[in-house]
């Protein structure tokens, strides 16, 4: 899924540095620069996740406790910030596909924002355009059906 975040596809640009060339799919700890805005985007995500996105005040507690943040290009709070700023480029982020809905963030958010629901809404916006987060040819042999059903329900249209 690394191609999702590669280079120019993103209108949110990230400064190079801190080994980002060596670890293109790792977390970027860089300032976000917003370059495009889609006015209906926030409403669309809010409708799909049922959360008040502007409740988030960027404390970063979700990112601090996220067990999957190491594998994300944008931290959970950064993803939320991009949605607040109505930048559809967030749909190219790897983060929603890495989120496993473990809800560690959900129980800790001081503002009661269920970030897992936001991640799911972002996944669904991509899935409903026909994208997929699962490559059929690369499924490891022997995974049990409980894992397969979970993965297909979360990561395929």
């Amino acid at each position: 899924m690394a191609e999702r975040i590669d280079g120019d596809a993103l209108r949110v640009t990230r400064d190079a540095g801190m080994g980002s060339e060596n670890y293109p799919s790792r977390v970027s700890r860089h300032p976000l620069r917003i370059t495009a805005r889609e006015p209906d985007f926030v409403a669309k995500v809010e409708e799909l996740c049922g959360e008040n996105l502007y409740a988030c005040y960027q404390c970063g507690k979700c990112a601090a406790g996220c067990l999957f943040a190491d594998h994300m290009d944008f931290l959970p709070n950064q993803v939320l910030r991009l949605v607040q700023l109505a930048d559809e480029a967030v749909l190219s982020s790897r983060a929603p596909w890495v989120c496993a809905s473990c809800l560690a963030c959900e129980v800790r958010c001081p503002k009661g924002v269920d970030i897992a629901k936001v991640m799911e809404a972002l996944r669904l916006l991509s899935l409903r355009k026909g994208e997929t987060g699962l490559r059929w040819g690369e499924i490891p042999p022997g995974v049990p059906q409980i894992a397969l059903v979970g993965a297909t329900r979360k990561l395929t249209p």
Partner: peptide, 19 residues
């Protein structure tokens, strides 16, 4: 009470392995 990686074991096994 931390996540084991759940169904990421299908799509990104390296994430589950790290967990």
């Amino acid at each position: 009470a931390e996540c084991c990686g759940a169904y990421q074991t299908v799509s990104s096994p390296e994430i589950a392995r790290a967990r």
